[in-house]
Amino acid sequence: MTKRKIYQVIEVSQKMIKTFPKQGHNRVVFNATFFRNGKKLNSIDEAMVSNFSPLVRNYEKSENPDKVKIEFKDLDKNSLIWSKTFLWNESEDSTNTSSNFSGLGEAEVNELVQRKFAEMEKNKDLKFMSSEIDRLKSLNEDLAFQVQDMEASLDAKKQIEYYTNIIGMALPGLAKFFTGSPVANAINFLAGTEEQPKTIEQNNIKENSPEQRETILEMISGFCQTMSNQELGTMYLLLSEIEKDRNSLKRILEFITQQSLVQTENQ
Rank of each mutant, 00 (worst) to 15 (best):
N64P: 02
F30G: 01
S50T: 14
F128L: 13
Y162L: 14
M120P: 01
E254W: 02
E63I: 07
G24E: 02
S248A: 07
D155N: 12
L112R: 10
N58K: 07
F223W: 12
A156Q: 12
M219K: 12
K73C: 08
T226W: 01
K39C: 05
N204G: 04
E241W: 06
A107E: 12
K137Q: 11
S228M: 02
T199I: 08
T95E: 14
A191S: 00
G233T: 13
S221N: 11
Y162C: 04
G168C: 01
S98N: 13
L239K: 00
I133V: 11
K198E: 06
L154T: 13
T199D: 08
Y59P: 01
D66H: 00
V147Y: 06
W88F: 07
M227F: 04
R246Q: 03
A118F: 00
I256F: 06
M219D: 10
N58E: 08
Y236E: 14
E90I: 02
N96T: 14
D142C: 11
Y59G: 01
N51C: 13
S83I: 15
Q202R: 12
L87H: 12
S99R: 15
E218K: 14
T257R: 09
S102H: 08
Y162H: 15
V109E: 09
E254R: 03
M227K: 05
E201S: 06
P182L: 07
N42Q: 12
P172Y: 03
E60L: 05
W82P: 09
V12D: 13
T199A: 09
L174I: 09
A186P: 03
I17H: 03
K73W: 15
V262T: 14
S131Y: 10
K5R: 10
K3T: 11
D142Q: 15
A186T: 12
I44R: 00
N100W: 10
E119L: 05
Q263A: 13
A118P: 00
F34E: 00
Q148D: 11
E254M: 05
F86W: 04
N140F: 09
M120G: 04
I167P: 00
E214I: 05
T193F: 01
S138K: 15
E106V: 13
R135L: 13
V9G: 02
R213K: 12
E108V: 04
L238K: 02
P197Q: 14
N229A: 14
M227R: 04
T257M: 10
S43D: 05
F52L: 07
Q14K: 15
E151I: 15
M169W: 02
L261F: 15
L143N: 10
K3W: 11
Q259E: 13
L171K: 01
K250A: 07
E106F: 11
